[in-house]
Design a protein around this nucleic acid. Structure first.
Lengths: 133, 133
DNA sequence: CTTTTTGCAAAACATTTGCATGTAA
DNA sequence: TTACATGCAAATGTTTTGCAAAAAG
């Protein structure tokens, strides 16, 4: 059930990307992550950041969400459990939420003769901190 | 409740874009739509296609979904009713589906102290025709 | 050693913008 | 008329790629 894509070789760059991703409050773009590495004095090529983020996503360590501005990544808290995200539009912070009834998708799809392959659900809003700030 | 953005001026180009969008089976990219117009001998500038698709979306005549490959547009069947999409990964055909309990989002969000501003839900699969083909 | 990764700069795309010219109202 | 839309080409911004040099196993 768990998609076990081949794992890539261990490098300091991969660890660095993983580290920054984990420390990030919420979703970050590749460019953003690259900038953060740079700021903390850790020079990693932008291309490598893209490559590693892709690898981490493949390996189930990161989640991706596509927006009009590009793709956003975040470290996965529950690599094995299927989940969705509640994302703060102000600070990018995110919470993983589980859907009670995932079968709903399959049922609705079946009603239309469709076979579901995947689905994407993201909820955007403002987190407690940003609401009061 | 219905977002009534100012409507733009009527031009042959806008009509052409709207027409192709309506004739398209499912979601199409701006580039794609531009190519289709070109093929049918209707020369419309790419920039205009982008501008008009944006306008149509603003006016509630089109839906947008962001994917890793860019934004996809499709003519809206139910401009006034809130809905989601069931999209065929093979042919791009799409069906609009309504969610029974939209309050679920607000409830889950509230549990985490979030105030929901918007959400996005897309279901990808294979339509009846592509399943058998 | 042999195979992967890295870094860089260039390339490839998608999307937007500036501006002179056309056109709906 | 006159404000707004168009078309082009140039500008942006993101993501990918080619390739020689460096690192991992």
């Amino acid at each position: 059930m768990a998609r076990k894509r081949a794992t890539t070789r261990n490098t300091t760059q991969k660890d660095a990307v993983r580290q920054v991703l984990k420390n990030a409050a919420g979703f970050v773009s590749a460019q953003d992550l690259h900038r953060r590495l740079d700021t903390e004095g850790n020079r990693v090529g932008l291309a490598t950041v893209y490559r590693q983020l892709g690898a981490l996503a493949d390996e189930g360590e990161a989640d991706i969400v596509s927006t009009a501005e590009g793709q956003l990544f975040r470290a996965c808290w529950q690599p094995d459990r299927h989940h969705h995200h509640l994302i703060c539009e102000t600070c990018g912070d995110a919470v993983e939420v589980a859907l009670g009834d995932e079968d709903w998708f399959a049922r609705v799809a079946a009603d239309h003769g469709y076979a579901v392959t995947r689905h994407s659900l993201e909820i955007f809003g403002r987190c407690p901190r940003c609401r009061t700030a």
